[in-house]
């Protein structure tokens, strides 16, 4: 079966002022698969997710979602695209004026015509997937970091989008939550068109769920392919990174 590409970075470069973050990056996100992006802290993983969501524009190059160039699309068109994509933020980014339940309901309340009861049911299910039903009425300020993170995750999956971008979904969570989240990401892939891009430092989870893996180093994608191929890569940088060794070509 030929693979379909749902999102594509084409020769993307990006600089914040003087600081060059990405240099001529190209990356295909395969539909229906889980693609994991790894790399050192500060390598630009979150930046890639933001690019796909059209939240920032590359300095040069193109970003496509389906066949639309998100760099040259009006904000209005972009909003339509964004409603079929979810981004689960690294630091949750819940609205602090809303309760957890309202936060998770927000995309459904604002973007769909679903009835309140139907929304409540879907939200319940999403909260159940992250074990947070009991905190429905809490404000974000009353929750722990890990709880916020799981709530952000629930908000991302509640709309049942065709592409979900998870920014370090398991970082800072207890082992049981890590397991729940990893299982949920895998379960969502089994739907007709569930595609996921996951940035993570959590290698065991990655090995469990990743179909494809990309490694970002010094602004470039230095390895990309099926997860097992990348694990067996002869590239010394990839080897050092995955083994977590201090000695090697990566400057620390």
């Amino acid at each position: 079966m030929p693979e379909r590409v749902i999102a594509r970075l084409e020769d993307v470069s990006l600089a914040f002022g003087e600081r060059v973050v990405l240099k001529n990056c190209s990356l295909d996100i395969v539909e229906g698969a889980i693609t994991c992006i790894v790399g050192l802290s500060g390598a630009g993983k979150s930046t890639i997710l933001r690019l796909i969501d059209g939240l920032i524009k590359p300095s040069t190059g193109h970003v496509y979602v389906r066949d639309q160039d998100v760099c040259h699309t009006s904000e209005r068109e972009l909003n339509k695209i964004r409603r079929s994509i979810s981004l689960s933020f690294q630091f949750a980014a819940l609205l602090d004026s809303l309760t957890l339940g309202q936060n998770v309901s927000l995309p459904l309340v604002e973007n769909t015509r679903m009835a309140g009861a139907a929304i409540a049911k879907v939200v319940d299910k999403a909260l159940d997937a992250v074990g947070l039903q009991y905190a429905y009425d809490n404000l974000p300020a009353e929750l722990s970091g890990g709880m916020l993170k799981r709530a952000g995750f629930a908000r991302a999956i509640v709309t049942d989008p065709e592409l979900i971008l998870y920014d370090e979904p398991t970082t800072g969570l207890d082992p049981i939550s890590v397991h729940m989240i990893t299982k949920t990401i895998m379960r969502l892939r089994e739907r007709s068109s569930g595609t996921a891009v996951v940035t993570s430092h959590d290698l065991p989870s990655i090995y469990m769920m990743a179909d494809y893996m990309a490694m970002l180093f010094e602004g470039a994608i230095i390895a990309y392919g099926p997860c097992d191929d990348v694990r067996k890569s002869q590239n010394p940088i990839v080897q050092q990174f995955l083994a977590g060794e201090e000695a090697g070509p990566i400057p620390i």
Binding site: L55, S86, F89, F91, L95, D96, L106, N111
Partner: peptide, 21 residues
């Protein structure tokens, strides 16, 4: 403070226009 805590970015990522919301 919503900007610096990425709440505005979160709204935009959900396709919710900050101007309207």
């Amino acid at each position: 403070s919503m900007v610096v805590t990425e709440q505005i970015e979160a709204l935009r990522s959900m396709g919710i226009e900050p101007a309207r919301y």
